[in-house]
Amino acid sequence: MKIQVCFFSVVRDIVGTDARQLSLPDGSTAAVVLETLGADHPRLLEWKHSIRFAVNQTYAPAETVLNEGDEVALIPPTSGG
């Protein structure tokens, strides 16, 4: 299945782009997105414990199973206000 991944802030600087399409096996979870990208961008894994996932613009646990066409975002610690 194909999903769209969006990057922001420090995560975008590490990955070097603001969005990317990924092809993953059916049944993959949000955690797999981070593992897959971490293989290409090892510095991402330093953020593993502080990154939250959003699936279709809603926070979702790492074990959330993804579907074709989902928009996944890796959300580093926020700093608005």
């Binding site: 922001f8 802030s9 420090v10 975002a73 580093p76 926020t78 700093s79 608005g80 206000g81």
Partner: peptide, 27 residues
């Protein structure tokens, strides 16, 4: 808002460094 809303702040320091707030990563 500070905890949950996906907004990020980049700080431009007077010494010329630019950093995402809360990260130790200089860019």
């Amino acid at each position: 808002l500070k905890k949950e809303v996906p907004i990020w702040k980049k700080e431009y320091f007077t010494d010329g460094h630019v950093e995402w707030s809360g990260s130790d990563v200089a860019i």
